[in-house]
Every structure is written in C-alpha cells, then in structure tokens.
Write a protein that binds this DNA or RNA. Structure first.
Length: 590
RNA sequence: GCGCCCGUAGCUCAGCUGGAUAGAGCAGCGGACUUCUAAUCCGCAGGCCACAGGUUCGAAUCCUGUCGGGCGUACCA
C-alpha cells in the first residue's frame, strides 16, 4: 500500500464525474460479452446446425502478433459444418452486428483463428482499475460469501515438521488464500491423530529415553521414534519431575507429554511460515460417539444383499468394511481385534463431521502416500452421503513428494528412524522463508520435485522470488522519487487520456496487466497457486523491461509521468496482491 | 503383479485442459550503468516434448503398449 495515495482515491468530486466512468468494463465482463456476441452470431448464421449449448470461447493469445484475445470456435465448428475453418471464421466476423466492447480490431488469421485487438482506452482503464481498486476487485466472486474448509498438513504429533510437510503447508495455505481472493470464507483446519498405535509408540519411545536419561537401560520399541528431540524431551522431563516416580509407571503421562510437546513444535514450525489454523481437530474428539454412529450408518447399508461391514467368524471385535462393493480394490479392517480403530474409520467419521458443518466446498490437501486411503474414504462418503454431494463439494488435492538430494545421492527420509530434514533446517539452508515458499510454489502439486540440499543456498541467491520482489521494491522507489518531484498519480475519477500512453512499451505492459485478473481467476478455479508465480514472473519482466525503455518520473513532462505512474502502480499493486495470496512479503526497499 | 503420479533445454521446472514458430529461471557465451535501484535489460546458443503406435484438419497435451523414476498396495498414519 502507498498511504500517500489512498487519501486521494477516497475523495469525492461529484461535479467532475466524467461520462467515461460508467463505461469502464472489467476484463471478465469484456470476455463474457465477447463470448455472448460470438455465440449469438454463430447461432444466427447456422441456427439448427449448431449443437445445443454451443459456447464460443475467447482466451488470451500467446503471441502478440495474433492480437490480444483469440477465438478458436471456427476451428471447432469446421467438423460440424463441413466447411473450411477460415471461411467459417470470416462468416462469423462479417456476421457480427453488435459493437464489440473494448475491441479496436478483429482479424481472421492462420488456419481460422479470430483474433481481437484490445482498444487503448480499454487497456488504460483496466490499468486504472488495478491501480486504484486492486486485483481483488477484478476477480470473480465465486464463493459469494459461502463457506469453504481447507484441510492441510494434518501431520501427526510425533515430531517436528519435515520438508515434505513444508511443501504441503505452503500449498494448502496458498490455496486457502486463493479461495478467499475469489470470495470464499475459508476455514483452515488441521486434523491430527492423537490416539492409536503411533502415539503409544511415541510415548514408549519417550519413556525409554527417560529411563536412559536416568542412567537406566531401556530400548526404544520396535517401530518407535529415534529422533534426537525425544532425548531432549526426556531430559526436560527428568529436570522437571526430579524424583517423581509416578511418571515411570504411567504410559499415558508419557504419551500426553510427548503429544503436547510435538504439537507445540508443529505450531511453532507453522508460525515460521506465518501459517495459523482456525482449528486443530483431534481424532479423539470423534471417539466414541462419532465413530460409533459411523459404524452404525455403515452397518445399515446393504449392497447386493450383503452388509457393508462384516465380522470375521473367529474374532468378535474385528470389523471389516467391504470396500470391494464400493469399487475399491480390497476390503479393509476398520476395527482391530483389540477394539482399536484403524485410520480409515475415524477419517470417515471426521469427513462426515465436516459435511455436517455446512461447508459448500471442502478441500483435502494430502501427500501421495494418502492417495489410496483417501479414495477409500471418498468411496465410503459417496455411499453414506450420496455421491453428488461428495463429488460436488469435496476436492482432494494430492501432491507428490520432495526427493532430497545430498552429495548427489537421494536421501531416504523417515520420521520414526529420526532421519529427516526438518522444515526449520530447510528454511535455514535456503536462507529465507520467502525463498523457501517460492521454491515450492513454483511447482505444480503433481510434479515430483528433486531438491538438492547442497544447492539450497546457491539456488536461493538466484531464486526468482527476488526478481519479483525487486520489481516491487523498484516501483516503490519510483513512487518515492515521484513524490519528491511533486508528481502524483492522477485522481481516480479523472479518466486517463490514452494519448499519454500510446507507446509500444506502454501497450505491452498494459496488455500484460489486462490478463492478470483472468489468469488469477483461472488459477483459483483450478486450485493451482503455482500459476500465480508465472503471472508474477511475467509482471516483473514486463515492468523491468518497461523501466529499461521509458523514463517514468520526468519533471519536464508531468502529464506523461503521471500517466506512466498509473501503470507502475497497477503493476506494483498487482504484484503485491499476488504475493499476498502466496504469503510472501512485498518489500518496499531491497 | 496391481493402482495412482511423473518423464519437456546441461540442471530445476512452466506450458492456460486439443491449436498458430514448445517457454522461463539457473548454468554457458557476447553486449548495455554520468540517467527514477545493474538483485536489471538486450542478444546468442541450447529440444526427435522418454520410446512406439493410434485418434483428426491439428497432439507435449487424449487412447493403447513399452521403458525408466516416485508413492501406495498394513489389523501404521
């Protein structure tokens, strides 16, 4: 934000309200309107030959030679109409009767693309909107205040967060912000398992270290946790408890102590990333009521004359869920013979709880290891809640793992064996939180990524995040220079004359800016925050190039300076708005 | 064996859901600072989009198969 400008934008000048103010059209409505006109034209010409529901689509051209926006409908229609795409395209263009908003040129190119050139006044007005009202004002209000829930990290409280969790944390957090940017009211939730075998093992591991710290001989149980942090907890516990022997005989106390310590570490790890959850949902909250009622619901479902759950003949307690009747590869045990629940059952109960809380959209962000389980859970929810309810509202995003490489070799990570690289260490090696975040955010979730620890610091010095942040800092510097020179942004309500911005470099930058809202909206729709890093890089390049070619602050030409300042501000604000969604700092100086 | 994901420049990765000449950063080579921040810009070089078929006006993108890598295939989570 530039406080020195905000006061201006709020001032009212009713008498000076120019006519052009009402003509401002947003990038989104321009596209909708174009598509509407094209669709109508196509239907007018060919009428019943066009399949029902046919919609023309316009998208940004990848090459400036082909105009700013392009439509491929003629190519698609060629097959249906049995005619050459070029001819069809020409007929469409000739048949357009309505005035196209914000468009100064239409042409038919290549095999049959219809290309549109955006008008200069329109481009100028969009830059103005970005500068004065910010990116969010141009994003579609998809959520419209509806509630969404994003579950992510959800790592069990058995130790510090690792590199893998870091990727997920950054991904989940940016998805949450992206949804917020498009009008959703988002709750961030962390689900953790605080019962079951892993917690018992953790408690036993701590007990063993506690013994050892007292000089005793004790072994960590098989499958237990070997991390150094457990030894530290044991020592702390010793120091605190002194000779209080009641601890030694109470496994529950060890579990509770370890659990609380672990959650504390996790929360402080997350705070390093500036991530705060609205709720930490413990599995134990579901036991016994929610789990029991889930078992009942599952039991009442019959498929092909068979109950969805069944017992083995010999063991009374053990309960299976017949996932095979739900199209899954194999049945699974959901209650063990000792009466304890396996992971899937409470997780189903948890998701039923989520659905019951009235969210319109739910996202689960999981690592690749959860894929199978997650499909089982979704299959169970489909049958319990009705398939459309689940597929409409629940979206599971699976991200692939980070493969760490050190000394040219891949490192196997294991939390239990105590062999892992923590989030803390990663941030330390990368040298900055922003660098670490950007590192993960430039990749799409499904991409496997190799991360070379030896190159961490080296890479971070050359990290693209600095390139983007530098653009922001540079513009901020220009704003300061402009202020000193007595040049300010034009006031919002005065339509900017496009004559002042008719150079090729101005146009190139404005064209880039015009694409930002639709690209951001598409990223939100797809829940793919990595696309924002692409937009950011493009904006930074666009600005740096513009800066190289054009003098912005020039006392000799205050009008031009002021107009160019608007473009800079549009750029700066778009960058800072996008960085904010990604949770990355937008520095004013570097 | 089976299921899911991935294979794109030397390296790390994009590629807007089938379109026009496949892009960026880093690494390499060569240029540009008396001018609002050179953490920048401009140029060169670098590709059989793993491989083989198929679908059609058109494929990195869709379908099949092969090869290679990751994850899963627990009465762990």
């Amino acid at each position: 934000m530039c406080p020195e400008f905000s006061s201006m934008t709020r001032r009212n000048h009713p008498k000076m309200e120019p006519a052009s103010h009402n003509q401002q059209i947003s990038p989104a409505s321009l596209r909708t309107e174009l598509e509407r006109i094209l669709s109508a034209t196509i239907n007018d010409i060919w009428d019943d030959k066009i399949p029902d529901g046919f919609q023309a689509v316009v998208s940004g051209s990848d090459n400036l030679e082909f105009g700013d926006l392009s439509c491929q409908s003629a190519l698609k229609l060629a097959r249906i109409l049995h005619d050459s795409p070029r001819k069809i395209a020409s007929m469409i263009v000739d048949g357009i009767e309505a005035k196209l908003p914000g468009i100064s040129g239409v042409s038919v190119d290549g095999p049959g693309f219809i290309n549109f050139t955006l008008s200069l006044p329109y481009l100028v007005s969009v830059s103005g909107m970005l500068a004065y009202r910010g990116l969010k004002s141009l994003l579609p209000d998809v959520g419209n205040g509806r509630k969404a829930l994003v579950e992510y990290v959800s790592s069990n409280p058995t130790g510090p967060l690792t590199v893998g969790h870091c990727r997920q944390a950054v991904l989940g957090e940016s998805i949450s912000s992206l949804l917020e940017a498009t009008g959703w009211e988002v709750s961030r939730e962390y689900y953790f398992n605080d019962t079951g075998r892993q917690m018992t093992l953790l408690g036993m591991s701590l007990a063993a270290r506690y013994e050892a710290a007292g000089g005793g001989e004790a072994e960590i149980p098989e499958g237990g946790y070997h991390g150094d942090y457990i030894t530290e907890w044991a020592q702390e516990l010793r120091d605190e408890q002194g000779s209080d022997l009641s601890w030694v005989n109470s496994s529950a106390k060890f579990i509770t102590f370890a659990k609380e310590r672990a959650i504390g570490i996790i929360k402080s790890d997350l705070s390093l990333l500036n991530i705060e959850f609205d709720r930490y949902f413990a599995e134990s909250e579901l036991i016994p009521d929610a789990v029991h009622s889930t078992i009942e619901k599952l039991s009442s479902i019959m498929i092909d004359g068979e109950s969805l759950v069944y017992h083995d003949n010999d063991e009374a307690e053990k309960l299976w869920l017949r996932f095979t009747s739900l199209g899954r590869p194999s049945d699974r045990v959901i209650v063990r013979d000792n009466g304890m629940y396996t992971y899937r059952l409470p997780d189903i109960a948890y998701h039923i709880d989520k659905f019951s809380r009235g969210y319109d959209f739910m996202i689960d962000v999981f690592g690749a290891d959860h894929l199978d389980t997650s499909k089982d859970v979704t299959a169970a929810l489909d049958i319990l809640l009705g398939s459309p309810a689940v597929s409409d509202k629940l979206r599971v995003i699976i991200h692939q793992f980070v493969t760490l490489v050190r000394d040219g070799r891949k490192i196997k990570m294991s939390t239990r064996a105590g062999k892992f690289v923590t989030l803390r260490e990663l941030i330390r090696d990368a040298g900055s939180v922003d660098v670490t975040k950007y590192l993960f955010l430039t990749r799409r979730a499904e991409a496997h990524m190799d991360f070379d620890l030896d190159l961490a610091r080296k890479e971070s010095n050359e990290n693209p995040v600095y390139y983007v942040q530098y653009a922001h800092a540079r513009i901020s510097g220009i704003m300061r220079t402009a202020k000193e020179a007595g040049i300010s942004l034009p006031e919002e309500h005065i339509a900017l004359s496009s004559d002042l911005l008719d150079g090729e470099h101005e146009r190139e930058l404005m064209r880039l800016l015009e694409l930002v809202p639709s690209r951001t909206a598409a990223a939100a729709e797809a829940c793919e925050p990595h696309r924002l890093t692409e937009i950011l890089a493009d904006l930074a390049t666009g600005f740096h190039r513009f800066y190289q070619h054009e003098r912005i602050v020039d006392s000799e030409n205050p009008d031009v300076s002021s107009a160019r300042l608007t473009l800079c501000e549009a750029c700066r604000r778009s960058i800072s708005d996008l960085l904010e969604i990604l949770g990355i700092d937008a520095p004013e100086r570097m």
